[in-house]
Every structure is written in structure tokens, then in C-alpha cells.
Design a protein around this nucleic acid. Structure first.
Lengths: 362, 362
DNA sequence: GCTGGCACTCTCTTGACACGACTGCTACAG
DNA sequence: CTGTAGCAGTCGTGTCAAGAGAGTGCCAGC
């Protein structure tokens, strides 16, 4: 990403100090501040006039900008990018924070949806930003078991569990009224038949004998195939987000343009940007940072996203990420996202579906 | 509510014209506009000076106010209240709108959660306000059927259907690993045993024989009782809301204080006000309007809520409502809420659980 | 009791002005 | 050639006064 040749060491120090101060104060950084700060640490070579010369060069390179001529400098998206790639100092969650988080998760043991919800909430809290988390899902998994429950005369509920532990329910409109007992009989028979099946194999089996099935049975089988297929292609239609409030409380928005708020809420609510991100993030390891104008859509052009995949490769997994202003604490955000991804990894492995076959085999 | 003696007819006409214009324009209404408008319809007796005299009297009574001395008048919450109680002209959805809405619902036949979601979305759209809908729920209903699905070695999913068609699922952490077959056996036995039971009766039965149950069976039975009990007392923990975006797009917010936005989002997200409203609305028939400072909490002190119960008395039902600025189109909002409540009534009665006993009886 | 008209009050906008914040540049020193 | 000091210049911000506009309150007359 940072394709330019590296900057001189002094420019790097100046840029880092500038970005760090700007992230801290949200005010354009004057040369004097940088001079004071750097001179006191690194000795001479950082008089304000000198810093100004270097700043002019950095501005030339497009890494910083000034809002107007009598204002200090502000990082550009490119400047943030260089900072994130090369200058940022690693940060970690304090042991105290780690303990607190673990404690919260401890209280919702084995409740997968709660983990997801909690993850979003914790990230929003820690980073005062919006957070999005998709539930874990394997891209390929087999049918483990399903049940049919009678809701009304001609309406049934299909509840389906896959080998990776993902659950999905769907209402079915039956062709003709069916009692719970009838439904149970169908479920028992189909469970035996389709155990371990994928969407494709249900389809295949179905094709061969569609004509021999009762209308209600056809509806059940088709729904099975459809739900399995839906689960197979990773489209994060389900996700949790949290932290709109935290985001709005930040000074960027507190005094800014309400129009901007609308944009952000809109993007988050529709989560339009997740599908765009998914392939890129799912393939690569580690935490990804997308800064401002680097977004495909420019609805987020003044927001940055820090996002990672969780779940071991091949295993069910999902995305977690935070959305904040480009002026965010990248180092801390990355630390938090990394920690939470690891946390979910650990939790998921506790629920290891390694013993799937035992249930299925008997 | 409108406890003052009625106003003179002319004051009423003036107040109505004022409120209607203010709702339309969002600008303080000058006496001249009222004079022009009323004189052209009702002839003399509405010169601007006369209107000013009447306005002074209305202000005296606390029904209107002026932001500053050289500005027009604006309704107070009391003024809106009087308007809603006595002056408002009935409004209805056009046949075209009705048809469009029905069409949308037609496309999600028999998907109860979708109805709820769609209701919120439609109301938000029609009224450019936030909308909240709680799923239908009976305050008393019996267990119809439940299933247990094995998720992981020691984690099962309990899916429960009540006689009113409400569904609930919950994850159980088992005492010891159990296969799907074992779980199914437990489910079959308990279904026979607890069919038609309420939370209380499960408890009672359980108390008598707790010692004879296996640990996993105890967990299942206790969860059954707990979930049934949760469903019995109406706490709208589940609800859908929509229309934050529509609300933010209104001029009140587009140029206003971002702090206010925060407040509203916070209230909606937590839906703190629903529990407070629930008893009042559930008891009374028809559409209720709560205006600005009439709210118990003053987080909504410049918002109005139009809310109604849906579902026939005694039958499963819920709340639907819209939240908008006090300067909202009350007449239209009431029309929309009434129409949507009726819509849900009709939809629910299609799914009539009248034939419950048939399923249970065999 | 209604109405026309006038004086009054208050807000909002505009322009001028001074101030302060930083910078860019130049000239000089090491 | 590099770093530094200082100064002139630019631009945003805050203040103030003046003027325009809006709408009212009130009085006198019908």
C-alpha cells in the first residue's frame, strides 16, 4: 500500500508526532508544537523553522494538508496510511481490560449469539466507535438435524442445525393442514435420509423422486435445500452492530454536520460496506485497515474501518470490525480488534464441533 | 386530558389554522398569515389586529408561545393537545396507499416476524418518523410443542411453540454430553407430559418429581418453565424499530443540535419508553397520543409518540407506534397507526389459532 | 367589538476592523 | 549545504455597529 519510497528518518519522526498529536487533540498541529516536543527528545535539528521546511515537503508528498493557510497541519488519508504501515507503535490491552472482557464473556457461556452481540458492544465501548460483527458461519457444512414444529393449521416452523453448529429457522406455508404428529413423522424420515447432506446433495436426491413425494413433503425438502444453500454462500445478511451512540458522542459529530451523521447511520444500518469488504478480509490473515478514501464507496470517505476475520482457516468464522473517524486511535483499535478476534477463536474452539460424527453416527 | 373549558369558536379556528400551518411550514406563524387565510374563508372578524388579540389570549392560556417578541406564534405541547383532542380533522390513507401496503404484506405471507419488521418499515416511510413494533404475544398461553436439537457435545437448542403461535429458542448448557437421539427421547417424553402446560403447571409438576429426573432432564424442564414464564409477563424485550434515518432527515434535526439526535437515538435504541407505555396502552382501546412534555421521561420532551395496541382483546397482541417531533402530522400519524394496527389484526386472525386443540388432542 | 395604523422591539445579516495564529521566505551563521 | 532566527503576509475568528425586516402591542376611531 505505502508505495512511496520511505521518508527520511526526521520526516518520519515529524509525521508520527503530528499524527499522534492530531489523533489526541483533533486540532490542526502547528509547527511550534512539533518543534517543542521533538527538540526536547532528540535535541537540535527540530527548530520550528526547520520543522516547517519538512512539513512543506510532507505536504508536497500528499501526506499532510492544511485546512487554511494560517492553520496547522492535518494528516491526509495517505498520511494515516503511512503512519499505520510504518510509524505506528504497537499497543495492547491492559491486563485489567483483558480480565474485564473475559469476565463479561464468562457470564454468557455457550450462547453463541450473545458472544457476537457482546463482542460488538465491547468494541464499541472500548473504542468509542461503531462496531460490526457477523455471526460465525462455515462456507460449507452439512445438515446435522432439523425439526418441524406446527405453528398453525397450515404453517410450520423449520429449525435446522448444521454440522458447524449454526442454526436457522424458517416458517413454511404448507400445502395442506398438517398436525404436529404428521410433521414429526416427516422430520424423522427426512432426517434419516438427509443426514450429512449439503444443499447440492439434497437437490440431487430431490430431483430423482420429486414425483413420489406428498406436496407437503416437497415443500419441506425444497425449504431444506434453499436454507442450506443460503447458508453456504457467505452473505452476511445477519450481523450485529453497536456503538452508533458512541460514534455520535465523538467531537467530530458533536459539532459537525448532521448530514454526515445521516450518511454514517445509513451505511451502518444497511451495512452496505460489509459485502464489499468480505472477500478481501476473509482471504487475508490479520487485521486490515481501510482508511477514508480507500473505501470503495465514498459514503465512508471520512471514516476508517479496522476489520479482521475470526475463526481458524476452514473453520466457521466471520468478520469483526470497528468503524470510526479517520482520526481514530489506530494502534488501539488494531489491538482491540485483534484481541477480540482471538477471543472468539478461543471460544469457538471450546465448542469444537470435532465430535460431530458421534452424534450423526448413531 | 384537555381539562380547560372549551375555547370560543373563533379561538378554535385560529388555533387550528395556526397548528396546521406550523406543522406544514415549521416556521412561527405570524398573525398576518392567519388573518389572510381565515378572512378569505370566514369573512370579516379576522383582521390581523383581531387575530393578534386572540393570539394574546391563547398565549395567556398557555396554548401557544412565541420564541421571541418579533416572531410569530408556535404551539405549545398544551396547544398540540387541544388540537389533537378537539380540532384535528380526521385523515385517511388514500386507497392507493392502502393497496400498496397490502401488496407489500402479500409478499411475505405467513411470516410473522416479517410482518412486524415490515410494519415498522412502512410506518417509518409513510410518516418520515421512527417506528417501533413489538411482535404479537399473548399474556397467557400454553405450551404446544417443543424440540431439542443437539448443537455441540453438551449444548442443545430448545425451540418452543406456544398455543398462540409464538416461538422462542434458547441454548441449553447440558450437565453431560447428550446425542441427538437422547435429546429426542427426552423431548418426546416431556412433550407428552407437558402438553398444554403453563409456566406454573410445569413448575408444579417439576417440584413433585425433581429428584427422579436425570440432571439433563432437570435442566430441560427448568428451562421450559423459565422460558414460559418469561413469555407470560409482557416485557417487550423483543421489538423492531426502523426509521432513524427518516427521523434524522427531518428539518428539525438537519439543522439542529446534534446533542438532540443523540438523545433520540439513545431512547430508541434502548427503547426505554416502551415498558413505561405498555400498561397504559394495552388497557385502553384505540390510538393514544403522548405529546412532548407529557412523557414520563424527559428524554422525549420534544418528541411525540402515537401508539396503539393491535390484536383482539384477550388474543395475542402487541404495540405499534411512531416517534416523531412534536411538530408531526398528528392526523395522518393516527390514521397510519390505526390502519396498520387493523392490518395486523386481520393478518393475525388469518393465522387464527382456533384449531389449536386439534393438534394437541391427538 | 372590530379594525387600521403606527411605534416599538427583537433578530438576523452585513461589513468593518482588530486580533491572533501560523506559515513561507529570506538572510545569515556554522 | 544545512539549520536557524526573524519578519512579513495571509487567513480565520470575534466583536461591534448599523440597517433591514418581521411581527407584535396598543391606541384611536368607526
Amino acid at each position: 500500500m505505502a508505495r512511496e519510497r520511505p521518508l527520511s528518518p526526521r520526516k518520519e519522526l515529524i509525521l508520527r508526532a503530528l499524527v499522534e498529536q492530531y489523533i489526541r487533540t483533533a486540532e490542526p498541529v502547528p509547527s511550534k508544537d512539533l518543534s517543542d516536543q521533538l527538540a526536547s527528545v532528540y535535541g537540535p535539528g527540530y527548530a520550528s523553522a526547520t520543522v516547517r521546511n519538512e512539513l512543506a515537503a510532507l505536504e508536497e508528498e500528499g501526506l499532510i494538508a492544511q485546512p487554511h493557510v494560517s492553520a496547522g497541519r492535518v494528516p491526509t488519508d495517505l498520511g494515516y496510511r503511512y503512519f499505520v504501515e510504518r510509524l505506528m507503535r504497537e499497543s495492547r490491552l491492559s491486563l485489567d481490560e483483558q480480565r474485564q472482557i473475559r469476565h463479561q464473556f464468562y457470564q454468557v457461556q455457550h450462547q453463541l449469539d450473545e458472544w457476537v452481540r457482546l463482542t460488538a458492544s465491547v468494541m464499541a465501548q472500548l473504542l468509542q466507535s461503531a462496531a460490526i460483527v457477523t455471526p460465525p458461519r462455515a462456507t460449507q457444512a452439512q445438515l446435522k438435524h432439523f425439526e418441524l414444529l406446527s405453528l398453525y393449521e397450515s404453517v410450520a416452523l423449520l429449525v435446522l442445525v448444521r454440522s458447524d453448529g449454526t442454526v436457522r429457522q424458517e416458517r413454511l406455508l404448507l400445502d395442506s393442514p398438517a398436525s404436529q404428529d404428521e410433521l414429526s413423522r416427516v422430520a424423522t424420515r427426512f432426517n434419516a435420509r438427509f443426514r450429512g447432506a449439503t444443499a447440492a446433495s439434497v437437490e440431487t436426491l430431490l430431483d430423482g423422486e420429486r414425483d413420489f413425494l406428498a406436496p407437503n413433503e416437497q415443500i419441506v425438502a425444497e425449504s431444506l435445500a434453499r436454507v442450506l444453500a443460503q447458508l453456504d454462500n457467505f452473505s452476511p445478511d445477519a450481523f450485529y452492530w453497536d456503538g452508533i451512540l458512541q460514534l455520535l458522542a465523538r467531537e467530530e459529530f458533536a459539532h459537525g454536520d448532521p448530514e454526515r451523521i445521516r450518511h454514517v447511520v445509513e451505511v451502518l444500518e444497511r451495512s452496505q460496506f460489509l459485502p464489499a469488504l468480505a472477500p478481501q478480509v476473509l482471504e487475508s490473515e490479520g487485521v486490515q485497515v481501510i482508511i477514508g478514501s480507500e473505501h470503495a464507496s465514498d459514503a465512508l470517505k471520512d471514516m476508517s474501518v479496522v476489520v479482521a476475520r475470526y475463526g481458524a482457516q476452514g473453520q466457521p468464522g466471520g468478520l469483526i470490525g470497528v468503524v470510526g473517524p479517520t482520526r481514530m486511535q489506530y494502534s488501539r483499535a488494531i489491538a482491540v480488534v485483534r484481541f477480540m478476534a482471538q477471543m472468539l477463536d478461543d471460544l469457538l474452539s471450546e465448542l469444537s464441533p470435532a465430535d460431530d460424527t458421534r452424534d450423526l453416527g448413531e
